[in-house]
Amino acid sequence: MITGNEAIAEGALDAGCRFYAGYPITPQNELPAYMSRRMPQLGGIFIQAESELAAINMVFGASAAGALAMTSSSSPGISLKQEGISYIAGARLPAVIVNIMRGGPGLGNIWPAQSDYFQATKSGGHGDYHCLVLAPSTVQEAYELVKLAFYLAEKYRNPAILLADGMLGQMMEPLVKNPKSKIPNPKDRRKEWALTGCKGRAPNIVKSFYMREGDLEKLNLALQKHYQLIQAKEERYEGLFLKDAQIILVAYGTMARISKVALHTLRQEGIKVGLIRPIALWPFPKKAFAAKSSSKVRYLVVEMSYGQMLEDVLLTVRDKEQVEFLGRAGGGVPSAEEIIKKVKKIL
């Protein structure tokens, strides 16, 4: 038995992460505490940074030097890191950022929430960029997906966010360490671009600054091409009962777990409910909706927010009449009963 926060730390270490910098914030404190204990045993580097800003910029530096680097925080701390994440994306550096979301806005509270979806998926800092975003719904999956996050970050030289919430971070579940799950490809770890000292080669420069006319537009066009490639290849989702469903619940992370309880209860009553659980939030799994978008199936988006992923579902389904929403935030979590009631009201 292990908490979600510790499982994420363990997954990161199994992926080969050997640099962690972070700043204390609830509800993710078990993660840095675990790293502070394990990192030195593995010959890695753990730094408790003086601020969230320092932590994300240490990740920038460690990644520039070729290390597999990670930071973690929770919502207000992740807001502080946004400038650094934008630099990481602009400099084409791989890095993993873990956000164990809590209630906002402002200082909010330490209850679980999913209110940072926009920030994670739509480029939370300045500039046209995207982070890969993965959303686990169990402790086991948190372990698997942080390994995948490192694999994808390294493969695409792009920041990847693991987006979970305080409930998953704090919850204890059994963990089976799976040596077969994806870890960074050695080919992606050669990193001819890394800063190592320029022995036997031309100097390397890590930067995101392009002042000469046209250069920054070129970088942006290259990034857009890069994002299209990721969108084509990295959609991920779990689908349940999509073939016969009259109504499909759309939920991720903790909310997907609760939605599954509602789904099975409703199925026992003979109501044909399905579930789309996005595992990647960016790229958003549009394919999951493709089979059903022409028919008159209804979708119920359930979130611990007031409708953030909802916008991506609407952009995908394109028919407002087909999409319903149930959401609570600020520490409120829609219950299975609330979902069941809403489904019955819709049908």
């Binding site: 920038f60 420069i205 890590v206 930067k207 600054f209």
Partner: peptide, 12 residues
């Protein structure tokens, strides 16, 4: 400079 260099955000 003809050696490896990294940019940093303002102050970092």
């Amino acid at each position: 400079w003809a050696f490896d260099c990294s940019e940093a955000a303002h102050g970092r």
